[in-house]
Computed example of a mutant assay.
Amino acid sequence: MSTPLKVTRIGHACQLIEFGEIRVLTDPWFTQTATYYPGEPIHLTVQELGRVDAVVVSHEHYDHCDLDALVTGGFDLDTPLIGPGTVATIARGKGFCDVRAVEAWEATTVAGLTVTATPGRHGVHEVTFIIQAGGRTVFFGGDSLRVPELDTIPERFGHIDLAILPTNGLCVRPANHQQVVMDAEQAAGLTAVLRPTLAVPQHYAFHSGRLGDQIITKSDQDPRHYADAVARIAPEIDVRVVLPGVEVTVS
Rank of each mutant, 00 (worst) to 15 (best):
N168P: 08
Q179H: 10
G189H: 12
V200Q: 00
N176P: 05
Q178L: 14
T191Y: 03
V172N: 07
L170W: 08
V200G: 00
G169A: 11
C171E: 15
P174T: 13
R195H: 11
R173Q: 11
M182V: 12
N168E: 05
V193D: 06
N168Y: 07
A187T: 04
Q186L: 06
R195E: 11
L198K: 03
A187C: 06
A175Y: 07
A199D: 00
P196I: 02
E185H: 12
M182K: 03
Q179A: 10
G169P: 08
Q186S: 13
Q179K: 11
R195L: 10
V172L: 13
D183A: 05
D183E: 07
Q179N: 11
L198P: 06
A188I: 01
L198I: 06
L194S: 03
H177N: 15
M182L: 14
L190T: 04
A184M: 01
L190E: 06
N176Y: 15
L194P: 06
E185G: 08
N168M: 11
V181Y: 04
A187N: 04
V172R: 00
V180C: 10
P174D: 11
Q178T: 15
N176R: 15
V172H: 05
N168A: 11
A199K: 01
V180M: 12
A187R: 03
A175D: 14
G169Y: 08
V180Y: 06
P196S: 03
V193L: 09
T197I: 03
L198H: 05
L194Q: 06
A199N: 01
A192E: 04
Q178K: 12
V181L: 08
L198Y: 07
G169I: 10
A187M: 05
A188L: 01
Q186D: 12
G189K: 13
V180S: 09
R195G: 09
R173L: 14
P174M: 10
D183R: 02
Q178S: 10
Q178V: 14
V172D: 01
Q178E: 15
R173I: 15
V193C: 08
L190W: 07
A184F: 02
P196T: 01
P196W: 00
L198M: 06
V180D: 07
V181T: 09
N168T: 08
Q186H: 14
L194R: 03
V180E: 11
